[in-house]
Write a protein that binds this DNA or RNA. Structure first.
Lengths: 348, 348
DNA sequence: TACAAATGTGAGAGCGATTACACAATGTAG
DNA sequence: CTACATTGTGTAATCGCTCTCACATTTGTA
């Protein structure tokens, strides 16, 4: 505040003009090596840092992107942020995180010049998102989506379909023929895709859609518990595939309460590979999404969009993997004999 | 980029000068109501948003703060960010999150004019932090600490001592006389304070320091497991107080592997109330820190520091609470008979 | 009625950078 | 040895806003 060192100071300190200093800073053409040296020396000596706002105002970029996150999904988002920030800091970008009212505030962030682009972790409210995205696209504002592709906009997605398909195949290997899919909110794309993959996988194994029973939750443990309580006694599936691990946990809790053994009486598989999943009893078989990698990929993509305009981007789909533990009915290999402990600690 | 609407445009549109428009925007003195109306109308009509950089350059504030987080502690940080962002967005601030190299980059962020203040979640590396903080303080740069008070700098902390003390008292109620404290890294203040409170609590109950055995971990589940494996057979405590829930989990895993019952053969209590803690078998008794509230409090404090310079701030200590479940030896009241399920779902 | 005080508005000087343009010094070719 | 690139550097306009100062108009007071 008080002691701003300006480009003028540097210029004066080594007897050149502001223009020359600016050229040195931006590694531009035609400055005598000797002058470069002198200027850099002064910059270091004075502790000079170019003022962002002056730079931005006179045409330079701000190298700032906004990461827009809906306000739930705690550890998931933390990992995402870490991934984004990791690449951002490496590439010289800065990350503004926005959680509240991010739909309403997005354009303003851009109009004020705060950010040059957006990374959205769009979840529900597909309508509003679509509207915003089409406005951004029309205005040529760079943005990309994490998680839920929408329209033709650039997106980083995980292979939900592939994940669902892997679960289906695995269930088939176990010989199940009557399965319950516990979905998230009906309009949620992730959940839909997982279901689709699940169905495809079963079909590939010769089972029609009638083999799949359906229940709907809202991703919370409680909703998993309640859906299980509501439908399991009635439908009596052999196996449950929950759209996320929390709901799978809810199912587990219900089954335990009812005295039903897992996987003895019923198999349960989740999606997300949450921190707690490997510690459940039995350890939960689940599908692991590459969250951190989504973050890094998103930021890398955004960086290249901003640095070299014209670089066109489509959808990038990152592979998921099936983490086989015990709740599906598999013998749990890595164990020490303890159902609570798989010895890997790999989620830390 | 192309279609910046400037203050000049607005001025022209309603036949006044830039100065007047500026006054209206900043709610300043002495503008005729009628003119205000006219200007606001034009602003709305043109979709005008003041350019951040121009504003900042000409003396205005940027209302941006940096949230500096060490790169671990996933869900913890997510909750913190949410808290900070919640208040920030409400108060018109913006949050830049930095994880990598935040010690080295902090001053630059300020010198470039990117941010007006810092919120640090400082953990290890006390030396380097102290050095940075003293520089910031000398330069009059606003900052505050979350979690680990250091020197006289403004800080938001949780009552680690109180938490440790509550655990001690609770252990005493159970009649334990020989306890193991499983600390985090030796130089970690949180862990030290929890230990201190624990000791105080025991002393208040008439037990000297010799009643406390000590082991050191690094906050990971694995380190908890290994410390337990290394020391429990030798020391044979009646109860273990781990500096965090993950290590407590490690202890639980070890005990289970050894066939020791919890709380029958040994009581275990953690700290943090992590997501998984209530689902462990047995549900883990632990100390809950008000993480979200730390975030909101931090941002509120920062906002008032920035808005009204001179408002002095000291340390704010937020209370912790003991979450009594079953691992301490208490009957687990809310249960449905199931050790995995406490029926509350309250961490979602 | 006269003059001071308050009120409302405009002109213009920065803020700290970038960058187009001008110009001097040096190098090269005819 | 002139003519013309090439190279290195400086001058000054510009970005969009705030804010001081000056000035015009209205209101209040004696």
């Amino acid at each position: 505040m008080s002691d701003q060192v300006t480009i003028e100071d540097v210029a004066r300190a080594c007897g050149v003009s502001r223009a020359t200093v600016s050229r040195v800073i931006n590694g531009e053409s035609r400055v005598r090596p000797q002058t470069i040296e002198k200027v850099n020396e002064a910059i270091r000596a004075l502790g000079y840092h170019p003022n962002l706002h002056a730079k931005a105002l006179s045409g330079g970029g701000t190298d700032t992107v906004a990461l827009m996150l809906p306000g739930v999904w705690r550890s998931y988002h933390a990992i995402l942020i870490e991934g984004v920030e990791e690449v951002a800091s490496r590439e010289g970008f800065h990350v503004l995180v926005r959680t509240k009212d991010y739909l309403e505030e997005a354009e303003r962030l851009f109009d004020e010049g705060r950010v040059e682009g957006f990374i959205f972790r769009n979840m529900d409210r597909a309508e509003e998102h679509a509207k915003l995205f089409s406005r951004l696209a029309r205005r040529g504002i760079p943005f990309l989506l994490i998680g839920n592709p929408l329209g033709d906009y650039p997106a980083i997605a995980i292979d939900n379909v592939g994940g669902g398909r892997m679960v289906a195949r695995h269930f088939l290997e176990h010989g199940f023929r009557r399965m319950l899919y516990l979905s998230g909110p009906a309009d949620h794309a992730d959940s839909q895709d997982r279901y689709f993959g699940f169905r495809v996988g079963l079909e590939e194994g010769g089972l029609g859609p009638e083999a799949i029973l359906r229940a709907e939750g809202d991703y919370t443990t409680r909703s998993g518990f309640e859906a299980a309580a509501r439908l399991i006694p009635e439908l009596e599936p052999e196996a449950v595939f929950a759209a996320n691990d929390r709901m799978a946990l809810g199912v587990l809790l219900y089954l335990r309460k009812r005295g039903l053994g897992v996987p003895g009486d019923m198999a349960v598989v989740g999606f997300d590979d949450a921190f707690f999943s490997e510690y459940l009893s039995p350890p939960l078989t689940t599908v692991r999404p590459p969250i951190h990698e989504m973050g890094t990929t998103a930021m890398k993509t955004m960086a290249s969009i901003l640095r070299k305009p014209g670089s066109l981007t489509g959808k990038i789909i990152l592979p998921t993997s099936l983490v086989v533990r015990a709740s599906c009915g598999c013998p749990f290999a890595p164990g020490e004999g303890s159902p609570l402990f798989d010895g890997s600690f790999n989620s830390e």
